[in-house]
Design a protein around this nucleic acid. Sequence first.
DNA 1: GAAGATTTCTTGTCAGGACAATTGGACAAG
DNA 2: CTTGTCCAATTGTCCTGACAAGAAATCTTC
Lengths: 246, 246
Amino acid sequence: MSTPLSIKIDRSSPIPLYHQVAQGIEGAIRDGSLASGTRLENEIELAQRLRLSRPTIRKAMDDLVQSGLLVRKRGVGTQVVSSQIRRHLELSSLNDDLERAGKKPSTTLLSFEHIPAPEQIQELLSLPKDVSVYHFTRLRSAGGSPLALMENWVRDDIVELDEKSLRAHGLYELLRDAGVNFRLAQQRIGATIADDIQAKALDAEAGSALVTMQRTAVDDTGRNVETGSHVYRADAYSFEMTLVQR
Amino acid sequence: MSTPLSIKIDRSSPIPLYHQVAQGIEGAIRDGSLASGTRLENEIELAQRLRLSRPTIRKAMDDLVQSGLLVRKRGVGTQVVSSQIRRHLELSSLNDDLERAGKKPSTTLLSFEHIPAPEQIQELLSLPKDVSVYHFTRLRSAGGSPLALMENWVRDDIVELDEKSLRAHGLYELLRDAGVNFRLAQQRIGATIADDIQAKALDAEAGSALVTMQRTAVDDTGRNVETGSHVYRADAYSFEMTLVQR
DNA sequence: GAAGATTTCTTGTCAGGACAATTGGACAAG
DNA sequence: CTTGTCCAATTGTCCTGACAAGAAATCTTC
């Protein structure tokens, strides 16, 4: 019943042991050697076999349960969940998503300005009085066809932005390189109808469906770094997520 | 710097200690006695004061970090995150959502049938050959105005459904009462344009924006219990969520 | 054979301790 | 005044050990 499951543990690696275990199990699930519905070895046995403690194994499994790959049941065991598409809605950017998916995203900078924060933005970002913002709009395309129209505001006391770098790199990439560690984001997803301007930019018809997304991202020091309002062509993009009951 | 933070621990309670701690901290945050940005006592001190072990405290804080209420930083401490609206997207039904918002939802059953599963549904639910499904559409209204049009398929070997109970109760309520414990759901959110039928049902104009949501829910035994395809009036509903970096 | 009691298996909770890694500030050196 | 170094504070990781609770299988009894 219990699958063998060979995982290599490198105790000299800087990667935490529990994470090595989690990666090992996740890998086995993704490459199919652990099929959906399979029951895993029990925690104690696995711990002994890998010469790790049970809490370490549990921590690894906890993480996988959190991300929706495993299901545990007391008295029964741990199972691999049914084989759906298992992409988690993560704190990531569209750029990252597309690159992972193997598409080649390209970005056109439509406008760029460095201005005092409008009142609404100042509120959204909880800005001190003397902080200004960068405001810019970009068009993101994938595979040659336009996909998203993105309007963003970024506070200017954390990173210095200019048109050139924005043309060459994704926003989140630039922020990460500037030492910003994102921790949280609040976002809202809805729908709207394309107006003439949006339609023209996205090469769609006026009146066609768009997915809207507003997001405000917070870094590890508690600052609201960035807020943005994006619209996506509904026929080309949707948000997928796995919800986990806790 | 460290806030006193009084939490009552009841060791005779069936509620796990770590959960009592988490509830205590969460309560203090929500009622304002722990303001945003406040630094918490360090883990060891808090453990000693409550006469609990450090792992127990850590487990409590882990959960709160997961749900986006706290942020930890090694070498620094643990902080309450900024006072955004801290609602997170949970595994819940629209009915639950509305009840929390204080509105009074009402449901109209538009159609109901008990049929062999169409091929596509059979695939989505990973159904065995001999299992049929209930298929029904409902209109959900709040405050007298229509809000959502919901089409669902439920496998018939887990719960017995009929028109009467569906008129009286929410779907998730019925399933929970039948002993179904949900663990996961995969969902996709997008947008579309209202066609004539949808527009008429939702009391909107044809061509107006709709938010679409497809969801498949999995119970604790790994079965795909239910799948549904819902559309919401975009001017009345959107999905909010807090994403946490892991 | 069926119903109930018992045992066994597995995860859930909790304790206590040890050391590592990171951060920020204080302090010393240039 | 700037730079680098050290130190203290705090969370991160990992270990061992123990018992509780729920679920399923097995045994017992009628």
